[in-house]
Structures are given as C-alpha cells and as structure tokens.
Amino acid sequence: MIETRDVNERMNTALDMDSLLIDWIDVEGRISRISDREARELAIDPRTVIGMPLESVYSGVSASLIRAVARGERTADRSFPVWMNSGPYGEMAMVASAFADGPNGLAILKQPLTPPTLGIGAELVERVEILSQMIGAATDACWCIEFLEPVDTSLAEEEIVEQIFRNRSRWRACNEAMSRLYRVPDDQDFNTQPVSRYFPATEINRRMVRDLVRSNYRLDRAQAVDRRHDNSEMLVENDFRAAVKDGLLIRLWGTTRDIGIHRKREQQLYDRAETMLDILSATPDPILVISDDGLLQAANPAAETAWGRPVDQMLGRPLQHFVETRNVLEKLLQAALEEEEAGDSECDLVIISASDSRDSWRFRAARIEGEMRRYVLTARKKPRRKSRLTAQEALS
C-alpha cells in the first residue's frame, strides 16, 4: 500500500506542473492560487486574482458549485462541467475534478471541452452564435453588469444600493451600439472598461437603483445620468432585469437609450408653447380652436372678456351653443377651405354672450396640420350699423 504522504507528494508534484489548468480555492470560497497555464489560457494576471471571489474566474453557476464544495456543503462528482471566464467577455467550457490538497485548500483540476467532446457542442455553439449576432446587430444599446462580488439582497435597502456600486463588477457581452452610445474609441473594447466610468454613484443613479430594489429587480424606463467616455454627462433611460440566485444578485442586464435629445426637444416645444400662450393672451381679438366636429378645444382670454363666458365653461362644448347663426360648423369649414385656395375668406357669425346679447363677429378660419384635424378661428367684432334716423340727424 502506498503511504498517504507519498500520495500527497505525488499529487502536489502533479499539481505544480505548468501544463495543467488548475487553481486552488480556500475554505471561504476564494481563489488562493492559480497555475501559470490557466493564467495564460484565461488571459489574466495570476497576481490580481489571489483572494478574489470565484466569479472573477468562473461563471456564476460554476462558482456557486465550487464554493459549496470548498465549504463542505456538498460533495463534488468525480468530474463535473464548469465554465471559465476567458478574455473580456468570452467563456470556455471545461470538465473539472476537485481534490483536497491539505493546507493549500481545494484544488480544481480542469480540461477544456471541445465541441466534439460535448456531443451537443455544435448545436450549443450555433445557438450562442445566433444570440450573439442578434445582440450585436441590435440598434438598441444592450449591456450586462456581472458582479464578481455578488450583492447580498437580504441586507437593508441602503446597503444593497451601496454594494451595487461598491462591489467588484464588470461589463459583459455589451454590444457595438453600447460603445457608440458612450462614444468609446474604436480601438478600445467597452467590455474591458470599468463599470463606474460610465455608471457613477451619483445621487440620481442611487435613486434609480433604490427604485430597482423596491421593484424586485425589474424596472423599465428608469432615468439616470451616465457619463460618456469623454466624461460628459448623458441623460439616459434604462430597462433593467436581474439574475438573483440563493439571495445573491449575480448580474444585471438590459437596454439603454439616450433621451437627452428628446428631453431637449420637449423643452424647446414647451418654451415655444409658453411663448405662443403669452402672445395669445396678449392678443385683443378672440382666438378659438375647434375640432373637426365643432367642439371648442381652446380659447384665449380675449374670448372670455368679449363674450363674458369663462373659458372652462366653453371648452368641450359645441361652438354652435354660443352662436345664433345656423350651420356654423359648415360655414367655418367652407371658409377654411376657401382660405387655403384663395388666401382670403371670412364669414359673419352672431355670437350670444353670457348676458344674452347678440353681436355680429367676423371670423377667419384656418386648418391646423396634424394627426387630428383642427381649426383655429380668429374673430373681430363688426361695428353696429347706424340707424337711418341717426344718419339723417347727422346730416342736418
């Protein structure tokens, strides 16, 4: 029988071989050592991962399995599949075996799995390619934040928010539209950039994350102020989804839209509307807006003053209710049509004021372009005709 000491010495000798993909995990489930070959295969600096959580090397599900084995919470099969993080956003399928290596902790020995070895590899690769192509070709900015240090969702709200911004994280599988949105130079990969560079822990962003936590990590049309690559601010709108496993937030993903341009346009339209309201309010002649079926939709203060009716009592009612002249809508629509064709058309209407007096007003009508056909009316009071007696008296 071979002594246990000899077995351990032989195993340790094998584990030190540079040709093996191997890392060592401590009882807390953190990386304590990594072989040179594994560092080369995964394109990482072995010194930077010491003491780091398993998610810095393994995908989320694989990390959870290995952590449970290291803590003695479950027993690993003789061999089991794992996914390793390779490069900035790639993954590599491997078959792993776990060995207890005394004071060195748990040794995870791995061998890459090629598509032929997997059997279903060709179909799996095709599906991954299809999804990658769909996301890559999307015009919307698609992103994913993976937490190398998962966030404990059992904590108080403010601590969860703090961990989302503080815990180590990285971008994964962000598409070209994301790079364009944040103006990342063509020679740089968005996925290798720090998350905090574009998603800083500002107060408005913290409020958005609070809303995300309160909505159970599913939130749409959430506004934030991000930073572009050149450090300029950008008002964006996000749709959030999340992966939470065993009470730990592993990743967030979603889409982002620049709404700064639309907000600026809205402000310009608002300013123009305010200016127009000021002009209309100062205009001494009544101005009305009616719908295609004759309902009063807007009126300026001059209309209220001229006819003695509060505007809010006129809105939504047919204009015919305040006009003694018959077929008022047909007359106005005809006037609007002639205005478009000849450029000069008017019609006279008798308006009934709140005091029940009648006065003749001359109206001009013009159609407003838009999805809903509307008409703007301007009115000017016609002077009363002098009686014949009065005229004769004036001549005498």
Rank of each mutant, 00 (worst) to 15 (best):
P383I: 00
L20D: 12
L181T: 05
T256W: 11
V209K: 01
A107I: 06
A68L: 10
L15N: 02
E55N: 15
E159F: 01
R206L: 08
V49L: 09
S19T: 05
E41H: 12
A137M: 10
R71L: 14
P194W: 13
N12M: 06
M372R: 15
G308H: 11
A342K: 04
R168C: 02
R78M: 03
R358M: 09
Q163K: 03
R358C: 02
Y58H: 13
D187S: 10
A336K: 01
A303Y: 00
P46K: 08
L377C: 06
R37Q: 04
N12I: 02
P318Y: 10
R30A: 02
L248N: 11
M94Q: 04
I108S: 12
S291P: 01
G90D: 13
T4A: 13
L252G: 02
V195C: 13
D278W: 06
D220N: 13
I352T: 12
A335F: 06
R228G: 14
A201R: 15
Q223F: 04
S79R: 15
L131H: 07
D140S: 11
E162P: 03
Y375E: 04
V95A: 14
E126W: 05
R74Q: 14
I368G: 00
L395I: 08
W24V: 03
E346Y: 01
C144W: 03
P200K: 14
A335E: 05
N175S: 00
R170M: 11
L42S: 12
G87I: 03
M11Y: 04
D36Q: 12
Y182F: 15
I108R: 13
S35W: 08
S79E: 11
L118I: 08
R309V: 09
L118P: 01
A156C: 06
G260D: 15
V95P: 04
N300M: 11
E176P: 09
Y58V: 01
A70E: 12
P200L: 09
Y89W: 08
A342T: 07
V323E: 01
L333S: 06
R183C: 03
C174H: 03
S355L: 05
A14F: 02
L333K: 11
M1E: 13
L337V: 10
G102E: 14
D152Y: 01
L109P: 04
I50H: 12
P318E: 11
G247K: 12
V376W: 09
V82P: 11
V236R: 08
S169P: 02
D356R: 13
R71Q: 15
